[in-house]
Design a binder for these strands. Sequence first.
DNA 1: CTGAAAGCGCTTACAG
DNA 2: CTGAAAGCGCTTACAG
Lengths: 343, 343
Amino acid sequence: MTMSNTGGRRKPPTIHDVAREAGVSRGTVSRVLNGGHYVSPAAQEAVNSAIRKTGYVVNRHARSLITGRSDSIGFLLTEPQERFFEDPNFNVLLSSCTQALAAHDIPLLLMLAGTKDERRRITRYITAGHVDGVLLVSSHSGDPVAEELREAGVPLVQCGKPMGSGAKVSYVAADDRDGARDMVRHLLSLGRRRIAMVSGPLDTPGGVDRLAGYKEVLTDAGIAIDERLVVSGDYSRASGEAGAERLLAQAPDLDAMFVASDLMAQGALAALARAGRRVPEDVSVGGFDDSVAALEATPALTTIRQPYDRISAEMVRVLLAQINGEDPMAVILPTELVKRDST
Amino acid sequence: MTMSNTGGRRKPPTIHDVAREAGVSRGTVSRVLNGGHYVSPAAQEAVNSAIRKTGYVVNRHARSLITGRSDSIGFLLTEPQERFFEDPNFNVLLSSCTQALAAHDIPLLLMLAGTKDERRRITRYITAGHVDGVLLVSSHSGDPVAEELREAGVPLVQCGKPMGSGAKVSYVAADDRDGARDMVRHLLSLGRRRIAMVSGPLDTPGGVDRLAGYKEVLTDAGIAIDERLVVSGDYSRASGEAGAERLLAQAPDLDAMFVASDLMAQGALAALARAGRRVPEDVSVGGFDDSVAALEATPALTTIRQPYDRISAEMVRVLLAQINGEDPMAVILPTELVKRDST
DNA sequence: CTGAAAGCGCTTACAG
DNA sequence: CTGAAAGCGCTTACAG
């Protein structure tokens, strides 16, 4: 028992050690490990106390070898990383997915596949069965990785509605269109009538749907859509700044701006400040996301909250269900208007 | 061969399939997989082409079961996550570590252990051998996890100099003290004489060392240290704002601020703007990190660049060496002054 | 240089 | 409810 442990790693106890300690067979130990079905209370008890005593932790490799499952999940980013890492939403998503999985004792493998080469390597790794399923963060349409994984039958859930074909892919998304509607209605309720919009990229669902919500509410209010009031950015801060500048040039009489992400709204705020427009006195500004960027902005941004904690939890739930044989499904979560100082 | 693949996952080829295809034994296949020693060129060739043909990918679980290695690395965060996720440096670190490991075909497991419970669970997981080594991001002194892992003999490298005991732990860090010296010298060269500092937390090495560099240069320049010119924050934006406000109250005649992180400097900039001080005309402001926060700031921040790409690469290199039996080592990387518009 | 064989630590029918 | 046994896919001495 008194093993000389000179810095090296001890050999961990195996199921065999537990069985000996508990006075049962390895099969019985395995049974209590896997749910305790068909095990007598006495054996159950003996095994549990032996596990505590030995400090036994299951060897996942041995288990995976036989079950054919890896008991791990991949978190895959298939686009240039800068975009995601710049975006505060990404952090929230990554950390809450990690936590949701931790609750199931499932480790998360982070996979970055920004280049073609990396995508090939990682697709191979995944299809070889090294993870049981994939949480995919990729907004653009026609992502080849998503398609390949789907064809290979890898359980998959996307964050955000996929643009592409109506293929049966699971996804979890906030209700972009409804969020946009809420924001524009709020702006209208403030008496604003020349409401501009900086949308997201129009090859992403968030870009398209938020713009659609904007147009819908204005039209319903009897306000004609003025194309000079609409520009689009790429969700980066810089593009929000450029977009706002363009709007100020095209439509100097604007009295509100709905910007499709908080980060872009930060940029818009900078452009407005430079142009000498006061926020919210002269121009009301609404963002989208309710990320830390909304609070960091000056003034603090009125925005549409995307429930990223719930999104992550649902992504994990849907993926786990799919791994267990359930069919794909889409989950749409409601957003919420958060009023702060910019409107 | 024409297996009906109704959406399910095909059973991947095994070493046995490759052996049959190549007309050799499984042992020989394994040998070429593991470096090709003691294999004839002909066999080598046959096996490689069989691998291509079958699309074989090694089953890591089977391999790990026998080698006793997991062929994966953990990236462990032992503090409340908000801190790290708010900090843009963290993203850079995480993504470049992932990439550095990908080059070795080693997957990275993300591990968040913000609470005591999680720390216990994860320590257990790690010491059970589920990862071969750990990249640890934890700045505070006396982190119990670091200590436990070290005692268990788990290969470990920390990001940043550990505060605690002079224990033999590997770490990789930027030269904080030297970076601080460069910044303060730069401020002096601009003619500034009432240079204030917002330091980091004084229970972190970055907090202590950057402050030491500041004091050293001033003293060398024959300027007495004025304690009213020194406050400390916790690296958050808010604490930078609060710190700058305190400085302005305590020492209204200050003509420069050296702020120990770009994020805090953003906050300081906001406080200065509110106080009506122009940057850099009235007050020169220097940051630290050269994170995206430096570029997002208005005006763009003069700062000290921490080479996070190199830091990550070195962390991975040192960890891999340690896994292969090498002794721990510390690596200190030089910083660089980046001049922008705030000084 | 190469094949046959043992064994890594676990799970799971199969008998009882 | 429980034990004995087979087998998951690989690596590695061991003979040749």
